[in-house]
Structure formats: structure tokens, C-alpha cells
Design a protein around this nucleic acid. Structure first.
Lengths: 307, 307
DNA sequence: GAACTCGTTCGAAGAGATCGAACATGTTGT
DNA sequence: ACAACATGTTCGATCTCTTCGAACGAGTTC
């Protein structure tokens, strides 16, 4: 509805303050510009040029058109670039959902590498807790899921591979009553103490945590890092990723306790829908198959007691 | 960069699943549509149509273009309407800033009347406290100011008229120690009690209220209604608009006290920059010159103790 | 296998855009 | 006051782009 030539015409008139000078600037005859100006006024059914004085000028409506059309032209440019990108096999956008179990920071180097490709693909990374990652994939709210726990559910076209194995340790603060309790800890002993669980508090989800016993009081916190901090402070008990608290256990800031009911290590998955797979998704899958990166993701960032 | 005809072409192909049917739908020859399709592909430098099968289809890039172009076309339509509106003498948008002293609710009927004009002018109404209304006008953050207090400052092109006069009453809760104090209240007596002031708490503005004595402790609240409530609850003292608390005083929920230092009534102003005055501004000025409306604005909404 | 449909090619025709020349009008410099 | 220059419009000629019908090759349907 407005070509780059027409926008250029408006801008040339605005900047030069004259139709003749605008024509010279555009390398066109004054009659060409005059004709095009009248065409624009007919098309918009509005007076865009003030011809009452010696020199033609933009009216307020003309100024508005020039200004807003420039912005629209930017939108068109961005769209043109996106169209070429999709035509080139890239996705328009890629939605990645990670389990909260993984630390976002560990993905930063991968994001930087992806940025360096200058693909133009809009990236969005969010996280879910518990079964949320699979739900996101099923509902089309994710193109790629990283670090999903539980067995992969039945989703048409679902493809996946294992990212790694996460080992757990039941740990309490030296200040916690269970620190001195006799091992292995009985269910009845554990259930008397509040469990610290990770929950997405932005959602009013049913707060169920891994390894939490029925009827056990709980404190929900938003991130794994917060859970580790809370347990260090003796606010409750629970299972923690072994690698992330190794230093804390070594320093005595957390005490590992054996339990009658041990927790099996978790298999973490990378999963995606196979039905539409563009170059961005393929790039990310190739990265995630790299064993060193996978290991860094699964091990996470070790938590320091002093922070 | 994309005409309505081109968008229509994309949509016809998408909906009919065939170039020939699209041509029929558009009332054009198939060769015309074929030519235009190739023009589009050249212009976007991208494969928009898949010709490998018997019938032509949109590629993912073609789908993206059709989808996003429809949204862009809506933006263009809206721009076209705005251009006509400005060409017709209306503003593109009107920014009204009121003093917090006025109650927003009293403007609702005027807004409704303005909406009924179907001018297309985007209205934005915000409020400021203290000298903020004049600042907003000077800084170009307001086209029209309603209920400004203080003498109009020196602003080039400033025009104004009086909206009305707001009378004040110094009032305290029956529960407040000053309720039984001997009248007229001395400065030394008043200063010992916390003042309730109205401040725009979204801004870290210097909290200075009207009729607040130097060195007097203060409680800042966001609206006049909140100040009235706070004083009813005995949380502090201060001047209140007489009309808004008339019922509360009558019922004994607030006690009027005479003071040695009385507060003069405030002149409230309507002000605007005269240098660019469109039909929307003119309409609002005409409304505000209506004495009944002006009176309703100045008197405000009486506060009920039970709320 | 005939009849029909699809999309492309190509030359002709139609429509729109561009230009130069001429003109009326306003501004600037002497 | 007037010549020289600048501005924007008008108009017919020309150029460029778009549209179409006819013909064609290839695929689908009955």
C-alpha cells in the first residue's frame, strides 16, 4: 500500500522543503514527483501536501504518513528478512523449554554460539518443573525440550535421546535435627520434617515434588538453587543433585544421610517433534549430542555456601 | 512493499489450494496470477510457491508472508484511517493530564461522550500531583491539563481558564488527639502530629504536601481518596476538600478544626498550548467550559465512611 | 484413452508511470 | 523596476509494467 519509492518521495519532500529539490534528490523529473504526489493523495483520500505557498509542503497528515510509513517500512524489511530466512530452511522462531533441574547459565555459551550464526531465528527459552516440559511439547509451546525427566510420554512424532543421568543425594543442614539421626533414615523419621520442593510459583500448579512423602509438610521454592540454599539453612530436607552440592558436603555445610528408601538417578532427555525440523532445531540437536556440553548441563553449576 | 492485490493473491492461493482457482476467485486470468506470483518471488528473493507437484502451493516462507502481510495490512489500514483523521483536522492522539485533586470517575461521562464522536483520536489520561501538571504541559507530555493548581507559570503559548475554586477544611478523626484540642489550633500543636499527604509514589518525587509544616512527620498516600480514608482512621491530620468530606463531617466521622493558619481556597485551572489546537482539543475545551461539568469536577465524589 | 484441469509461455493490448517542453507564478539580485 | 532564476503544473509523447487470450505440455479423472 506504500512502496519504498513513495516513502522516499515523502522523506525527500520533508527534508528538502520543496518538490523540485526532492525531484532532483530522487533523480526524477518534477512532473513525475508531482504526478506521484497526487496519486498518493487520491489513494489515501487526504490532503498530504500544502500547495498554498510558493513551495509545496507536507501537511500534518503528510508528516504523520511519512513518519509512520517509515516505521511500517522497517516492519516490512524485517518481514522480508524473515521470509528469506524461512525460505532458506531456518525456522522463524525456536522455542526451547528446559526443566528447572538444569541451570540456565549453562546454556549461555550455546546461545552465544547460536547468535554467532546470525540466522535471524528468534529464540525463546523458558523452563518448566515436573511434567511441564512434556506438556509444553505436546501443546506446541515448545519446539525443543532439554532436560525432561520421567519416561517420554506418547506424543505423535516425538523423537528424543538421553542427555545424561542425574544422581541424587539426601542432604540436611548440620543445624537440622536429622543431621544427628541414625542412618539409614526411616520413612517415619523423614516425614516428620518439612520437605523443600521446587515449584513454578507463577503457576498455581499442584505442588508435588520428587521424593516427597505423602502427608509431608512442604516449602515450595522457585529454583533448584533456592532449594539448595534453603536446605543449607536448615529450613527443610530433601534430595539434591549430587554434583551441585559436592563442595557443600565436602565442607560440611550439608550432611549426606542414607535413607531406607533411596532415590534412583534420573534420566534426562532431549526431545522434539519430528514433523517439522528446521536448521535451527538441527543445530541445537547437534550441540546437545556433544558429550561435554551434555555433561556440563547435567552437572549444572555447583552451589557455593558463601553466596 | 506489498499491495492489497498481492495479499489477496496469497490468500486466494492459500485458501483454494490452486493458482487456477485463485485466479478464478480473483476474477483474473491464470497467466496474470502466475506473472504476479513470480514478481513477488523476485521481489522477496525467496521461493514462495512450491511448483513441484501438479498444483501450485505456498511454501512455509509463502505461508509466513501471507500471515504476517495480513497483519501488516491491518497496520496500514489503521494508518490510512489516522492519516484521514489528521487531514480532517483531528489530532492523532490527545494527552490529558489531570491533577490528582480531581477524581477520575468524574471524567468518565465526558470520555463516553467523546467516544460517541467516533473521531478515532487516541485518548490518554494520566494524573500528576503538585506542580506535575504544569511540568507535563511544558515538557510536551500533556496536550491538555485539567485541575492544575498554583498560578500558571510562564510557558510560551500557554492558554488557560479557571475551572473552579476548591475549598479546604482541616479535619481530624474523632479518635485523634487533636479532636479535643482547643481551637484555633496553634502551629506548635499541629506540627506534633503526622500529616497525611498525597504523592505520586511511582515517582521518587520530593514529597511535599500542601499545608504541611516544615519538620512535620508525614505519611504519603497515592490518592486523595486514600488521604481521606487515612484521616478518618486517625492515622494523621491535614487539609481536605470541603465538598468531598461534607457528609463525613456531618456524620461525625471527621471533625473540622479551626486553625490559626487557615488555608486559602485553591483556584483550579484548565490549560493548554495554543500553538497546535485540533478538533479534539477544541471539543474538550468546550466541554470543560460547561459550568455544570466544571462544578462536578471540582466538587469531586463525596467519600462515604462505610467504604 | 478421451475429456478435463493445471500452470506456463508468449505476443498483443491495455494501463500506468515518466519525461521534456511550455507555461504561469513567485523570489532574488542588481 | 526589471531581468534572471526557481517552483510546480499541465499535457502530449514515450516508456514500462500488467493483463489477457491462445497455445501448449503435463497431470488427473472418469
Amino acid at each position: 500500500m506504500l512502496s519504498t519509492d513513495e516513502l522516499a518521495l515523502l522523506e525527500a519532500i520533508r527534508e528538502s522543503g520543496s518538490l523540485s529539490r526532492a525531484a532532483a534528490r530522487l533523480g526524477k523529473a518534477p512532473s513525475t514527483v508531482s504526478y506521484a504526489a497526487r496519486q498518493l493523495e487520491a489513494r489515501f483520500d487526504a490532503l498530504l501536501f500544502d500547495r498554498r505557498r510558493y513551495r509545496l509542503q507536507l501537511t500534518p497528515a503528510g508528516h504523520l504518513l511519512a513518519q509512520e510509513a517509515a516505521r511500517l517500512m522497517q516492519d516490512v524489511s524485517r518481514l522480508t528478512q524473515r521470509v528469506k530466512q524461512v525460505a532458506g530452511g531456518w525456522e522463524d522462531r525456536l522455542w526451547i523449554v528446559t526443566d528447572e533441574i538444569l541451570e540456565f547459565d549453562t546454556l549461555i555459551p550455546v546461545i552465544r554460539s547460536f547468535d554467532a550464526l546470525k540466522s535471524g531465528v528468534t529464540l525463546r527459552i523458558t523452563h518448566e518443573v515436573l511434567g511441564g516440559t512434556w506438556d509444553a511439547l505436546r501443546d506446541g509451546r515448545a519446539d525443543l525440550v532439554v532436560g525432561a525427566t520421567n519416561e517420554p510420554p506418547v506424543i505423535p512424532g516425538l523423537r528424543w535421546f538421553e542427555l545424561g543421568v542425574m544422581d541424587w543425594v539426601f542432604a540436611v543442614s548440620p543445624k537440622h535435627p536429622l543431621a544427628k539421626a541414625k542412618e539409614p533414615l526411616e520413612r517415619a523419621t523423614v516425614i516428620q520434617h518439612r520437605a523443600i520442593v521446587v515449584a513454578d510459583t507463577s503457576r498455581k500448579t499442584d505442588v508435588r515434588g520428587y521424593g516427597v512423602l505423602g502427608g509431608q509438610p512442604k516449602l515450595a521454592v522457585p529454583r533448584m538453587r533456592a532449594k539448595i540454599r534453603a536446605q543449607c539453612e536448615g529450613l527443610g530436607v530433601g534430595w539434591l543433585p549430587r554434583d551441585r552440592v559436592a563442595g557443600l558436603i565436602k565442607r560440611g555445610d550439608l550432611i549426606e544421610k542414607k535413607t531406607v528408601d533411596p532415590r534412583e538417578p534420573n534420566l534426562l532427555y532431549v526431545a522434539w517433534r519430528g514433523d517439522h525440523q528446521g536448521r535451527a532445531l538441527e543445530w541445537w540437536l547437534a550441540q546437545l549430542q556433544n558429550k561435554r556440553l551434555a555433561s556440563r548441563l547435567v552437572r549444572g553449576v555447583e552451589v557455593d555456601a558463601t553466596l
